[in-house]
């Protein structure tokens, strides 16, 4: 990714083992093109999530006292635990890219397995300890009943609709990550030509995974740590 000066001064000399495609001048240009393409996708994701963050901010501004009361139904412990799980998974993903760059296939695959384990753990915690109890307590948008003595029922329902919409969309991104990382693992394992000797596919999936982590970094304080 780092586009350093080509010390060889030529067009791709000395990069014989890098999978350079004919439309690119050299491997730097090719890698930069891939990375910028991935960032373009991530920019659309920022806008996609951004609209939801905007909706959240407006209603939070409007109904802060009710949102505060509703947010007490969420578990800071499991939210925090999931934050730790995702941070660690991001670290493993960075390590996977590191080993891909050094062409250490075995270690790269091991790191990707650890990322997978974290992703599954995240979804497990999310579904079993957070979403399912919310269903039992009638707090999902589908079966919402607010029988607490305080707080406005409609505003509380709005809070939980936003909560399920945003954490649900984030969960779908985790699920997509599991599938994409699985596909990458298969290709790396099989020494497929599209990934052999090229760290960029791992790098791009890593960028996606870190982005999903960033979304959670914002979701966590916005839903679990509301001030009065």
């Amino acid at each position: 990714m780092a586009m350093v000066q080509d010390t060889h001064g030529g067009h791709g000399h000395g990069h014989g083992d890098e999978p350079l495609h004919h439309q690119f001048e050299d491997i730097h240009q090719q890698n930069e093109t891939y990375v910028i393409g991935m960032w373009t996708f991530l920019v659309t994701e920022v806008m996609f999530f951004g609209a939801l963050f905007l909706a959240y901010s407006l209603y939070r501004w409007k109904y802060q006292p009710d949102f505060y009361i509703a947010h007490k139904e969420l578990s800071v412990f499991f939210g925090g635990l999931n934050t730790v799980v995702l941070l660690i998974s991001s670290f493993f993903m960075a390590k996977a890219v590191y080993h891909a760059q050094r062409k250490e296939k075995r270690k790269q695959l091991n790191m990707l397995w650890l990322v997978q384990a974290c992703a599954v753990a995240f979804l497990f915690i999310k579904v079993v300890f957070e979403w399912m109890p919310k269903w039992q307590h009638h707090l999902t948008p589908l079966n919402f009943i607010w029988d607490k003595p305080e707080g406005n029922a409609e505003h509380a329902q709005l809070f939980f609709s936003l909560y399920f919409g945003m954490t649900g969309l984030h969960g779908i991104h985790i699920l997509a990550g599991i599938i994409v990382i699985g596909a990458l693992q298969y290709l790396v394992w099989k020494d497929a030509p599209s990934v052999k000797g090229d760290y960029i596919p791992t790098e791009m999936i890593g960028l996606y995974w870190h982005f999903v982590d960033i979304v959670w970094i914002f979701l966590f304080p916005l839903y679990y740590l509301l001030p009065r």
């Binding site: 780092a2 991001s90 890593g206």
Partner: peptide, 12 residues
């Protein structure tokens, strides 16, 4: 650091 933008090209 994780996404490595610090070490990437100006365009990126």
């Amino acid at each position: 650091f994780f996404m490595g933008v610090k070490y990437s090209s100006k365009l990126t």
